[in-house]
Amino acid sequence: MRTYFMTGFPGFLATKLIEQLARIPNQIACFHLLHVPSERHTATKRRDDLLKRTSLRPDQLLLHEGDITIDQLALSLETRRMLHQDVTHIFHLAALYDLSTAYDPAFRINVIGTANVTRFAHSCRALERYVYFSTAYVSGLRSGTVLEDELQANSFKNAYEETKYLAEVRFRNEIGTLPYTIIRPGIVVGHSKTGETPKWDGVYFVLNAMRLLQSVAPLPYPGRANALVNLVPYDYVIEATAYLSHAPVGINKTYHLTDPFPHGARAIFEMLHVAYYGRYPRGILPFRLVSTALTPVVAKRLQMQRQTLDYFIHPVQYDTTHAIRDLRDTGIICPDLSETMPRIVAYYQTHAEY
């Protein structure tokens, strides 16, 4: 029986991962879910929702107030002793994901937090796997093709990328002989079949702009740059993670859970535009004008982060050799964005809070 310890609850990916793992309930002893004290109400509600949507019992979803930035995760000695004896799988998803975050809080949560979770993992006597959620963007400003085995970068677009890079470096230095799996997702978007998402960041900032500029549509293409942009539906990330974190083939591997056939920035803008307005973009607006016009005041009005634009002009390709090979014959594949984009936009149009 598997006993899971998970950080990042009640976050969306952590919740969806629990739902995925709960599909095989006879293999589950318990989920121990770490949350910060300020998330107590949300964590309780999310746990109750999981009890309604899965076959898990209340005694299989246990909440623990703690903090990854504090030594011993701020857990009591009694709780730690119990976890050190029982936990077989650790999923470390907690991180500060905001692209506009300052360096210090990002370092504290992403780097120090990961080091504390790794120290905790070394005390788990029954541990079978430690699954660490990194990001494909630990590659920083590297261009060209980035392999799954590589961890090399010396400059970054933002503090999020830099601290996630430093966190993975530290993870690799401190993991020792523990069995691990590193998951590096691309830019996560909604469900490939339903478009469902609770997070309106990343590419959704572009949709925010389209909504507020619909009176002047059709819009021009924002520049001629056509860098590949790696958008990946969350269901692919969750299903692949659930499999690779338990399969023997996934031990001590790093996986790019990214789109193996990503689309260029112009194609993605066109998909968004057609799905939202029902017509194609018209004309081209030089990217430098777009960047200059996106002042803090304008960005706030458009509900858009300036940092998002960087991911539409940076030329990088993420190799997925390990992921494709090890997921072969499982039926788990990354759907093509051209098929999922209409559903993503439709969900945004009916669910986003304006």
Rank of each mutant, 00 (worst) to 15 (best):
T194W: 08
R81K: 14
A225I: 05
T42G: 03
L127C: 02
R47H: 02
P296Q: 12
Q85P: 00
T163H: 12
L302S: 09
R172S: 07
T3F: 08
F269W: 09
T194L: 10
R46N: 13
S139H: 08
D310I: 03
L228N: 14
Q152V: 13
L147S: 08
L327A: 07
F133K: 00
C30Q: 15
L178F: 04
T241H: 09
H35P: 04
D310Q: 14
I18G: 01
V237F: 06
V316R: 04
T54P: 00
A209D: 10
R53A: 13
L77M: 02
D149W: 03
L13T: 04
D149P: 02
P260Y: 10
M304W: 04
A240V: 02
A22I: 06
T320I: 00
D235V: 01
G331T: 03
E353S: 11
C124I: 11
M6P: 00
M271I: 05
A94M: 09
C124R: 13
N26Q: 15
Q307G: 07
Y204V: 00
G186M: 08
A74D: 15
I284K: 10
F205A: 10
G202C: 07
P281V: 14
H122Q: 10
L13K: 03
A153R: 08
V232C: 10
G250M: 06
S291C: 05
T15F: 07
